[in-house]
Amino acid sequence: TLLDETSVLGLGLGAGLAGMLPVPEIQYLAYLHNAEDQLRGEAATMRFFSQGAFRNPMVVRVAGLAYQEGFGGHFHNDNSVAVLRDVPGLVIAVPARPDDAAPMLRTCLASAAVDGSVCVFLEPIALYHTRDLYAEGDGEWLAGYPEPGAWVAGHVPVGRARVYQVGSADDLTIITFGNGVRMSLRAAAVLAEEGVGTRVVDLRWLAPLPVADIIRESSATGRVLVVDETRRSGGVGEGVIAALVDAGYVGAARRVAGVDSFVPLGPAARHVLVSTEAITDGARTLLAR
């Protein structure tokens, strides 16, 4: 196609109306903003304004989010997803690990084919080539690819989180997604050496949020640290905190989020993005309350 985001999504719209199941791809997240009205004003509203007479299913793959070493500026490091979360009915998936990525993509395709959904599959670029979790060479971030016969067993429903337990998992709940999952697991390992048991909740879905999982895992410890790699204002963390308040959660809660800034060039990016150290310090502050 043309290197034009409006044309890419427009072609997807037409293909969906014609009965196909398009999977347009946008590189990178920052360039999606050039054509976001194709999703907000066209794709996600087709069934709504036609009272279900028409549908234009699609799964939009978007390489995005930050933490890319060697890439600079807000066009290749963009941590803004607020405009997507504001669109009614849009399904937003953010896989963090390879053993979630393939099942979640199949779920999006099934949702589009069966329900006519418009899905955005947001892929953290910085994790594409990640192999290790705790130490270089441990291979803890790798996973095998199951044969088709095993796909059903690994199905990931829309709006369901994934929970990791580190240590006793009784002291602290960390709620995060995307790049934050790996950083939070690393932080949880440090806290485990200090006798702190942590459960790390990978949201996986930013819309609809896995509210039931958020409430259950938060109530289990009574201490919640929301780790949000998007910005403090308009970020995902606001939705998580609001879900807790709406459910009557009465425990302690704290956020670690990106600064309200575009992502700058080079090492300066570290001053605005969440880090493993910031997560660890935030957890210690929360536990000290």
Rank of each mutant, 00 (worst) to 15 (best):
Y128A: 07
L133H: 01
A135D: 08
E136S: 09
E136K: 08
G137L: 11
G137W: 13
G139M: 08
G139Q: 12
G139R: 15
E140K: 15
E140H: 09
E140Y: 02
E140T: 04
W141L: 11
W141A: 08
L142W: 04
Y145C: 05
Y145E: 11
Y145D: 12
Y145G: 00
E147H: 11
E147N: 03
P148A: 07
P148E: 03
P148W: 10
A150G: 11
W151T: 08
V152Q: 14
A153Y: 02
G154I: 07
H155P: 02
V156H: 12
P157N: 12
G159I: 12
R160G: 03
A161Y: 04
A161M: 10
A161P: 07
R162Q: 10
Y164W: 13
Q165D: 15
V166I: 15
G167Q: 05
S168Y: 06
A169R: 07
A169H: 14
A169W: 07
A169L: 13
D170F: 00
D171W: 02
D171T: 05
D171C: 08
L172S: 03
L172W: 03
T173V: 14
T173W: 12
T173I: 13
I174E: 04
I174C: 10
I174M: 15
I175M: 06
I175K: 00
G178D: 12
G178E: 08
N179P: 09
G180Q: 05
G180F: 06
V181Q: 00
V181G: 00
V181M: 04
V181I: 13
R182N: 03
M183D: 07
M183V: 06
S184R: 02
S184V: 06
S184D: 04
L185G: 00
L185Q: 01
R186Q: 15
A188V: 03
A189V: 06
A189D: 13
V190R: 14
L191W: 01
L191R: 01
L191V: 07
L191Q: 01
A192T: 03
A192F: 04
E193S: 14
E193V: 06
E193R: 14
E193P: 04
E193Q: 14
E194I: 04
V196T: 07
G197D: 05
R199I: 10
R199L: 10
V200S: 00
V201S: 00
L203M: 11
R204W: 01
W205V: 10
L206R: 00
L206G: 00
L206Y: 01
A207W: 02
A207I: 03
L209D: 02
L209I: 10
V211F: 06
A212G: 10
A212L: 14
D213Q: 04
I214E: 02
I215C: 10
S219R: 14
A220L: 15
A220E: 10
T221Q: 07
T221V: 13
G222F: 09
R223G: 01
L225W: 07
V226F: 08
V227D: 03
D228C: 13
E229M: 13
E229T: 15
E229H: 14
T230I: 06
R232Q: 15
R232H: 15
R232G: 11
S233I: 14
G235V: 14
G237Q: 03
E238Y: 08
G239D: 13
G239I: 09
G239Q: 09
V240F: 12
V240M: 09
V240Y: 09
V240D: 04
V240A: 06
